[in-house]
């Protein structure tokens, strides 16, 4: 893992200075419930109901025998658009669930899942589903590539707090 990280960082440093960044900030809200489990979370880029790029999928990756994957289908739009076509864990996409708070995920626009994005209209989609809890899905539309810096946010009402998208060209 450490080795992979260092390779990534080297790679990042080696990219041209003009490469931009997409930052996705997801707020996992504090909920006053008797039984709390961190939500499963999927963040992806869609176009015309198709998942174009998986940015991250957070689930209970610690469980024995990949058992945490049993509830992935509760993120039912993501499951339909992408999850059911994958095998788990997904390299570079799967990760553990996130605690209450704000989390920012940054992606180099010239590398990884965003590098292949063709110019056009897309949406960032964030879907959260919580064991013995609810489910919520939020979308932020955006144009690609961004000519100027773009910053947008939407606010969830139950399972998600504020979700923000910032693109630096």
């Amino acid at each position: 893992m450490r080795k992979l990280l260092s390779v990534t960082l080297t790679g990042l440093a080696a990219t041209p200075a003009m490469a931009g960044e997409m930052a996705v900030t997801v707020e996992i809200p504090r909920l006053d419930v008797a039984e709390y489990h961190r939500p499963y979370l999927a963040v992806w880029v869609e176009q015309n109901d198709q998942a174009i790029a998986n940015l991250t999928v957070r689930y209970d990756v610690q469980k024995r025998d990949n058992e945490g994957t049993k509830w992935l289908k509760d993120m039912r739009q993501w499951w339909r658009r992408s999850g059911r076509d994958q095998s788990f864990p997904i390299d570079g996409v799967s990760g553990p669930t996130l605690p209450v708070g704000e989390h920012t995920l940054s992606f180099d626009t010239a590398k990884g899942p965003l590098a292949a994005l063709k110019p056009g209209a897309y949406a960032l989609v964030v879907e959260a589903a919580r064991e013995v809890g609810g489910r919520e899905l939020l979308r932020i539309p955006f144009e690609w590539p961004a000519k100027v810096a773009v910053s947008q946010s939407v606010k969830g009402s139950s399972e998600l707090g504020t979700v923000a998208l910032a693109i630096k060209p």
Binding site: D65, N66, E67, T69, K70, W71, L72, K73, R76, W79, R80, G83, R84
Partner: peptide
């Protein structure tokens, strides 16, 4: 009818 996981 729609299932995920290792052993559904």
């Amino acid at each position: 009818t729609v299932l995920s996981g290792q052993d559904p």
